[in-house]
């Protein structure tokens, strides 16, 4: 039984790490602020969620598992809020969405 839980953990955490990798590539490669933000906030939600789910079978007791879930919820809430705030500043400062032709090029965008 324990090997099955370990395997489940390995698969979930592996998927989470893959999600982080994809999000980081998006952060580095996407052309404008809003797209980069999209990549990072997806990571906050999905990849952290997968890692927390993967850690849950490894901790003792329901209390510790619930605390892990709380960590995920807090990260989601702060990630979503900060994402909105950065997007608001980007829009106010008039960061234009990148031209489709410019996608793939590393354009650092305006500084906040």
């Amino acid at each position: 039984m324990s090997w099955a839980l370990d395997a489940l953990s390995a698969v979930l955490i592996g998927a989470g790490v893959l999600g982080f990798f994809a999000g980081t590539v998006g952060l580095l490669r996407f052309p404008d602020t809003l797209s980069r933000l999209h990549a990072v906030t997806k990571t906050d939600n999905l990849a952290v969620g997968l890692i927390v789910l993967g850690l849950m079978p490894q901790v003792d007791g329901v209390g510790a598992a619930l605390r892990l879930a709380l960590v995920w919820l807090l990260l989601q809430a702060s990630g979503a809020t900060v994402g909105q705030l950065i997007a608001e500043v980007a829009r106010r400062d008039g960061a234009p969405p990148a031209e489709p032709a410019a996608s793939g090029r590393r354009d650092r965008g305006p500084r906040p």
């Binding site: 807090l74 809430a77 702060s78 979503a80 809020t81 909105q84 705030l85």
Partner: peptide, 14 residues
């Protein structure tokens, strides 16, 4: 009323 106001109302009790 926006994300920050909501966050600042919901988070402090936690």
């Amino acid at each position: 009323e926006g994300p920050l106001t909501l966050f600042a109302r919901v988070l402090p009790p936690v």
